[in-house]
Amino acid sequence: MKQVPDIIDYDLKILFIGFNPGLRSAATGHHFAGYSNKFWKLLAAAGLTPYRFRPEEDRALLAVGLGVTNIVARPSRAAAEITKAEYQAGKEILAAKLSLYRPRLACFAGVGVYKEFAGRSNIKCGRQPVPTVAGVTDFVVPSPSGLTRIVFAEQLAYYQELARLLACSTQLEER
Protein backbone atom coordinates (compact mmCIF):
# COMPACT_ATOMS: atom_id res chain seq x y z
CA MET A 1 0.00 0.00 0.00
CA LYS A 2 1.42 3.38 -0.98
CA GLN A 3 1.95 6.22 1.45
CA VAL A 4 0.19 9.55 1.04
CA PRO A 5 2.72 12.38 0.60
CA ASP A 6 2.78 15.26 3.06
CA ILE A 7 1.40 18.60 1.97
CA ILE A 8 3.87 20.82 3.75
CA ASP A 9 5.94 23.94 3.27
CA TYR A 10 7.58 26.67 5.30
CA ASP A 11 5.55 29.41 6.98
CA LEU A 12 2.18 27.67 6.87
CA LYS A 13 -0.69 29.23 8.76
CA ILE A 14 -1.91 25.79 9.90
CA LEU A 15 -0.44 22.32 9.58
CA PHE A 16 -3.16 19.72 10.15
CA ILE A 17 -1.93 16.47 11.69
CA GLY A 18 -3.91 13.25 11.46
CA PHE A 19 -3.35 9.77 12.88
CA ASN A 20 -2.43 8.10 9.59
CA PRO A 21 -3.94 7.73 6.13
CA GLY A 22 -6.95 5.50 5.80
CA LEU A 23 -7.22 2.84 3.12
CA ARG A 24 -9.13 5.09 0.70
CA SER A 25 -6.53 7.85 1.13
CA ALA A 26 -3.80 5.32 0.38
CA ALA A 27 -5.68 4.07 -2.70
CA THR A 28 -6.24 7.59 -4.07
CA GLY A 29 -3.04 9.23 -2.83
CA HIS A 30 -5.00 12.06 -1.20
CA HIS A 31 -5.57 13.05 2.42
CA PHE A 32 -8.92 12.65 4.19
CA ALA A 33 -10.41 10.82 1.19
CA GLY A 34 -12.75 8.51 3.13
CA TYR A 35 -16.36 8.83 2.00
CA SER A 36 -17.61 9.66 5.49
CA ASN A 37 -14.68 11.90 6.48
CA LYS A 38 -15.83 15.45 7.26
CA PHE A 39 -12.46 17.24 7.03
CA TRP A 40 -13.07 19.10 3.76
CA LYS A 41 -16.61 20.05 4.74
CA LEU A 42 -15.41 21.37 8.11
CA LEU A 43 -12.63 23.47 6.58
CA ALA A 44 -15.05 25.16 4.18
CA ALA A 45 -17.83 25.62 6.75
CA ALA A 46 -15.36 27.29 9.15
CA GLY A 47 -14.08 29.61 6.42
CA LEU A 48 -10.57 28.12 6.43
CA THR A 49 -10.82 27.41 2.68
CA PRO A 50 -12.64 29.54 0.10
CA TYR A 51 -14.84 26.60 -0.96
CA ARG A 52 -15.20 22.89 -0.18
CA PHE A 53 -12.12 21.26 -1.61
CA ARG A 54 -12.29 17.68 -2.83
CA PRO A 55 -9.61 15.27 -1.61
CA GLU A 56 -8.05 15.37 -5.10
CA GLU A 57 -7.43 19.10 -4.55
CA ASP A 58 -5.48 18.58 -1.33
CA ARG A 59 -2.28 20.08 -2.80
CA ALA A 60 -4.21 23.35 -3.34
CA LEU A 61 -4.20 23.78 0.44
CA LEU A 62 -0.70 25.22 0.17
CA ALA A 63 -2.08 28.18 -1.80
CA VAL A 64 -4.20 29.16 1.21
CA GLY A 65 -1.41 28.57 3.73
CA LEU A 66 -2.56 25.16 4.97
CA GLY A 67 -0.84 21.79 5.01
CA VAL A 68 -1.42 18.18 6.07
CA THR A 69 0.74 15.46 7.56
CA ASN A 70 0.22 12.47 9.87
CA ILE A 71 1.89 11.21 13.01
CA VAL A 72 2.24 7.80 11.29
CA ALA A 73 2.74 7.44 7.54
CA ARG A 74 1.61 3.80 7.20
CA PRO A 75 -1.99 3.53 5.98
CA SER A 76 -4.43 1.33 7.88
CA ARG A 77 -8.14 0.62 8.16
CA ALA A 78 -8.30 2.23 11.62
CA ALA A 79 -6.00 4.16 13.96
CA ALA A 80 -6.35 1.29 16.46
CA GLU A 81 -3.97 -0.71 14.21
CA ILE A 82 -1.08 1.71 14.84
CA THR A 83 1.57 0.21 17.12
CA LYS A 84 3.32 1.96 20.02
CA ALA A 85 6.60 1.66 18.11
CA GLU A 86 5.06 3.41 15.10
CA TYR A 87 3.74 6.19 17.33
CA GLN A 88 7.15 6.63 18.96
CA ALA A 89 8.96 6.83 15.62
CA GLY A 90 6.23 9.09 14.20
CA LYS A 91 6.43 11.40 17.20
CA GLU A 92 10.13 12.02 16.55
CA ILE A 93 9.59 12.60 12.82
CA LEU A 94 6.66 14.96 13.49
CA ALA A 95 8.63 16.97 16.05
CA ALA A 96 11.40 17.40 13.47
CA LYS A 97 8.87 18.55 10.84
CA LEU A 98 7.33 21.09 13.21
CA SER A 99 10.77 22.41 14.18
CA LEU A 100 11.89 22.66 10.56
CA TYR A 101 8.76 24.05 8.89
CA ARG A 102 7.49 26.15 11.85
CA PRO A 103 3.78 26.46 11.03
CA ARG A 104 1.97 29.17 12.99
CA LEU A 105 -0.52 26.57 14.29
CA ALA A 106 -0.20 22.80 14.58
CA CYS A 107 -3.76 21.47 14.48
CA PHE A 108 -4.10 17.88 15.68
CA ALA A 109 -7.13 16.24 14.06
CA GLY A 110 -8.12 14.12 17.02
CA VAL A 111 -7.52 14.13 20.76
CA GLY A 112 -5.76 10.76 20.45
CA VAL A 113 -3.25 12.14 17.94
CA TYR A 114 -2.28 14.88 20.37
CA LYS A 115 -2.12 12.47 23.33
CA GLU A 116 0.32 10.28 21.41
CA PHE A 117 2.44 13.21 20.26
CA ALA A 118 2.51 15.28 23.44
CA GLY A 119 2.49 12.38 25.88
CA ARG A 120 -0.17 14.15 27.88
CA SER A 121 -3.51 12.96 29.19
CA ASN A 122 -6.75 14.79 30.01
CA ILE A 123 -6.65 16.62 26.68
CA LYS A 124 -9.58 18.78 25.66
CA CYS A 125 -10.20 20.20 22.22
CA GLY A 126 -9.09 23.78 21.60
CA ARG A 127 -5.86 25.70 22.07
CA GLN A 128 -3.38 23.87 24.26
CA PRO A 129 -1.77 25.85 27.10
CA VAL A 130 1.79 24.60 26.53
CA PRO A 131 3.29 24.14 23.06
CA THR A 132 5.14 20.92 22.28
CA VAL A 133 7.52 22.74 19.91
CA ALA A 134 8.63 26.26 20.87
CA GLY A 135 7.06 28.93 18.71
CA VAL A 136 4.28 26.70 17.33
CA THR A 137 0.81 26.94 18.88
CA ASP A 138 -0.89 23.57 19.44
CA PHE A 139 -4.61 23.25 18.77
CA VAL A 140 -6.77 20.12 18.93
CA VAL A 141 -9.99 19.49 17.00
CA PRO A 142 -12.14 16.35 17.11
CA SER A 143 -11.22 13.73 14.55
CA PRO A 144 -13.13 14.36 11.31
CA SER A 145 -13.40 10.61 10.71
CA GLY A 146 -16.81 9.20 9.98
CA LEU A 147 -16.23 6.92 12.98
CA THR A 148 -16.35 9.93 15.34
CA ARG A 149 -19.60 10.16 17.29
CA ILE A 150 -19.33 13.93 17.83
CA VAL A 151 -22.06 15.72 15.88
CA PHE A 152 -21.06 17.99 13.01
CA ALA A 153 -22.14 21.23 14.73
CA GLU A 154 -19.90 20.50 17.72
CA GLN A 155 -16.97 19.60 15.46
CA LEU A 156 -17.54 22.78 13.46
CA ALA A 157 -17.43 24.92 16.60
CA TYR A 158 -13.80 23.87 17.17
CA TYR A 159 -12.84 24.55 13.54
CA GLN A 160 -14.46 27.98 13.87
CA GLU A 161 -12.47 28.59 17.06
CA LEU A 162 -9.34 27.62 15.12
CA ALA A 163 -10.26 30.11 12.37
CA ARG A 164 -10.75 32.88 14.97
CA LEU A 165 -7.38 32.09 16.57
CA LEU A 166 -5.75 32.23 13.14
CA ALA A 167 -7.41 35.58 12.39
CA CYS A 168 -6.23 37.02 15.73
CA SER A 169 -2.67 35.82 15.19
CA THR A 170 -2.67 37.27 11.66
CA GLN A 171 -3.85 40.66 12.96
CA LEU A 172 -1.11 40.68 15.59
CA GLU A 173 1.52 39.86 12.97
CA GLU A 174 0.34 42.71 10.74
CA ARG A 175 0.84 45.30 13.48
Rank of each mutant, 00 (worst) to 15 (best):
E56F: 08
E56Y: 10
E56I: 11
D58L: 02
D58K: 03
A60I: 09
A60S: 11
A60W: 04
L61I: 05
L62S: 04
L62W: 00
L62C: 03
L62N: 05
A63S: 08
A63V: 07
A63L: 13
A63N: 13
V64A: 03
V64L: 06
V64N: 05
G65R: 02
G65W: 00
L66Q: 00
L66H: 03
G67A: 01
G67P: 05
G67C: 06
V68Y: 05
T69C: 07
T69K: 03
T69D: 11
T69A: 02
N70Q: 02
N70Y: 03
N70A: 07
V72H: 03
V72C: 08
A73L: 15
A73G: 12
A73V: 06
A73I: 06
R74C: 03
P75N: 09
P75H: 04
S76N: 15
R77L: 14
R77P: 11
A78R: 10
A78T: 13
A78F: 14
A79P: 05
A79C: 09
A80H: 10
A80P: 05
A80S: 14
A80E: 14
E81Q: 14
E81R: 11
E81H: 07
E81C: 09
E81A: 12
I82W: 02
I82P: 10
T83S: 15
T83R: 06
K84M: 13
K84S: 14
K84I: 01
A85G: 13
A85C: 12
A85R: 09
E86S: 09
E86W: 02
Y87N: 08
Y87D: 10
Y87C: 05
Y87T: 02
Q88V: 08
Q88C: 06
Q88G: 01
A89T: 02
A89Y: 08
A89V: 01
K91E: 11
K91A: 02
K91N: 14
K91C: 12
E92N: 12
E92M: 13
I93Q: 06
I93G: 03
L94R: 05
L94A: 05
A96V: 07
A96Q: 13
A96H: 13
A96D: 15
A96F: 03
K97M: 09
K97L: 09
K97W: 00
K97F: 11
L98D: 08
L98H: 01
L100R: 10
Y101S: 00
Y101Q: 02
R102Y: 04
R102M: 04
